[in-house]
Simulated scan of single mutants.
Amino acid sequence: MTKNRGGSRRTWLRSMLAVVTGFSAVLTMASTAGAATHSTGYAAAAASCPYKYFCAWPEPNFGGTPLPPMYNCKEYDIPWTGVGSWINNQTPGTRAQFRSSDHVTRWMDDGAYDSDASADWGWVYWVKPC
Rank of each mutant, 00 (worst) to 15 (best):
A46E: 02
A45V: 06
C49Q: 01
D77M: 10
N89L: 01
T40E: 06
F98D: 10
T28S: 09
S39V: 06
G84D: 00
G22W: 00
Q97W: 07
S85Y: 02
G41F: 07
N88F: 05
P92E: 15
R95C: 11
S48N: 12
N89E: 04
T37S: 13
S24W: 13
A46N: 04
E75C: 07
N72E: 15
P66E: 05
W80R: 06
T91V: 10
M108Q: 10
D110V: 08
W107G: 01
N88V: 05
T32I: 15
K74N: 08
T94L: 08
D109A: 04
P60I: 11
M70N: 03
I78R: 00
N89R: 04
T32Q: 12
Y53W: 03
T40P: 02
A33Q: 08
L67G: 09
E59I: 02
A96I: 02
L27Y: 03
H103S: 14
W107S: 10
D102K: 02
N89M: 03
C55R: 01
Q97L: 09
M70D: 02
F54E: 00
F98A: 11
G93V: 01
T91H: 00
A33S: 09
N72L: 15
A33F: 09
Q90C: 07
F54Y: 11
A43F: 12
S48H: 04
S39E: 12
L67Q: 09
A44T: 12
G34P: 00
G41V: 04
P58Q: 07
R99V: 03
G64H: 12
A30H: 12
G41I: 03
E75H: 14
D109S: 07
A46P: 02
G22Y: 01
A36Y: 05
P69Q: 14
G41K: 15
W80A: 04
F54I: 05
F98S: 06
E59D: 15
Q90W: 01
W86R: 01
V104G: 09
L67E: 04
G84R: 00
A25G: 14
A33H: 07
P92A: 12
P60N: 09
T37N: 06
D109K: 05
G82L: 02
T37A: 10
T65H: 03
P79T: 07
S24H: 12
S48K: 03
N88E: 04
G93H: 02
A47C: 11
D77E: 07
P68V: 05
G22Q: 06
G82H: 00
C73Q: 11
G34M: 06
A47M: 12
D102Y: 00
S31R: 15
R99D: 01
S39N: 09
G84E: 01
Y42S: 15
R99E: 00
G63V: 12
K74F: 09
D110F: 08
T105M: 10
I87Y: 10
V26Y: 14
M108C: 06
A45S: 10
H103D: 02
P60L: 05
V83G: 01
D77P: 03
H103R: 13
T40R: 04
F23V: 12
S48R: 06
W107P: 00
S31Y: 14
E75F: 14
N61L: 06
P79H: 07
